[in-house]
Amino acid sequence: MPLAPATVRRIAHLARIHIADDDIPRLQGELNGILGWVEQLAALDVEGVQPLTGAARMALRLRDDAVTEGGIPEKILANAPERAGDYFVVPKVVE
């Protein structure tokens, strides 16, 4: 199922990556090349196979409920592109 230009735009927007109109055809070609190639998996019968999420052979470990972190606003904000006092700042969000 080859991607249409509109789909490329929709994915790029979902991923919050601006794509110039001029770049759409090239990107469309590359993505379709990759998707067409991974399409080979469709040939396999995976009926009844349990999906494997990861390679770790364990269950989740639980940590104790104790406050061990925080209280470091200067470190948290040290790399902020924009801040006001102890807040991060972004362009106004309209809800």
Partner: peptide, 29 residues
Amino acid sequence: KRRILIGTYVLSAGYYDAYYLRAQKVRSL
């Protein structure tokens, strides 16, 4: 960017089963 876009696509509504879930099953094999 290419990989982010591919990844976004294979997880997106309607494609998850055909791509991501199938890949996890092959991973199991």
